[in-house]
Design a protein around this nucleic acid. Structure first.
Lengths: 121, 121
DNA sequence: CGGAATCCAGGATGATACTG
DNA sequence: CAGTATCATCCTGGATTCCG
C-alpha cells in the first residue's frame, strides 16, 4: 500500500468513526434508549415518563429530554393550562433511528445469551 | 389498554432496552470504534494501534482492547519472542457488528450534515 | 515491546430543595 | 405539574512510573 492510499484510508476510517460516534452521542446517553422507547409508544407526559423509568432522577430526565429535543429526535409540546401540561412525541426524524434500534436489539439479545453478561453502560 | 397489556409492554420495552444497552456497552466506549476500525483492516500490533490512534493513552488502549477481547469482538495473539509481539484481529463474532456500523455510519453522516454538530461522546 | 499499578482532575450522575 | 438550582459523589480517563 502506498502512503497516499494509507492516508486516504485513514481519513475514511476517521470519517466513519466520527459518524458512528455522532450516532452514539445521540442515542448513547445512559437513559436515552429507555426514554425514546417510551416516547415511541405515543404521546407521554413528563411525570408519566418519570414513573415509567424507575431510578431516573428529575435532573437526568430533563437533561436527556432536552438533548433528544435539540437533536430533533423528540418533540416537546407545551399546553398552557393550569396545571401546566407538557407532552413528548417522537419526530419523523427520530423514527429514522428505528432500523438501528432493531439491529441493536437483535444483536444485543444474541450477545447477552452468548456472553451471559456484557458491560451495560 | 389493560393493566396486563401495559405490564407486558413494559417488560418488552425493558428487554429491548437491555439488549440495545448491551450493544452500546460493547461498542460505545470512547475509543472502541476507532480501535475496531483499525483492527478490522487486519492484524495489528499494540504499538501500531497506539500510533494509529493519536491522543489515546496506553491505559485506555489496554483497557478497551481487553474489554473488546472479553466481549469476543477481537482476538489477541501473543508470540513468545524477544522482544515480545502481540497481534490483534477481528473475530468472526466481531464481524457480526458490521451491519450496525454501516447503519450508524450512514445515519451519523446525515445527522452531522443536518444538525451541523451533535454531541460526540 | 507490551503492558500493569498508582495517583489525580474533571465531568457525569445523583439527592435534595425550591419555583413558576 | 414540570421543571431548575445547588451541592455531594462517583467514575472515567489522563499522566506518570514501574515490570517481565
Amino acid at each position: 500500500m502506498t502512503n497516499e492510499q494509507a492516508a486516504s484510508r485513514f481519513e475514511h476510517d476517521y470519517e466513519c468513526y466520527e459518524n458512528v460516534a455522532a450516532t452514539i452521542g445521540v442515542i448513547g446517553g445512559k437513559w436515552k434508549m429507555l426514554i425514546m422507547w417510551h416516547v415511541n409508544q405515543g404521546s407521554i407526559r413528563y411525570n408519566e415518563l418519570r414513573r415509567s423509568i424507575p431510578g431516573i432522577s428529575q435532573k437526568m430526565l430533563s437533561q436527556q429530554l432536552k438533548e433528544l429535543e435539540q437533536d430533533g429526535i423528540i418533540h416537546r409540546e407545551v399546553y398552557p393550562e393550569t396545571p401546566p401540561r407538557v407532552e413528548y412525541n417522537i419526530t419523523d426524524y427520530g423514527h429514522t433511528l428505528d432500523p438501528i434500534f432493531d439491529l441493536m436489539d437483535a444483536w444485543g439479545e444474541t450477545h447477552r445469551q452468548t456472553v451471559g453478561r456484557g458491560r451495560t453502560p
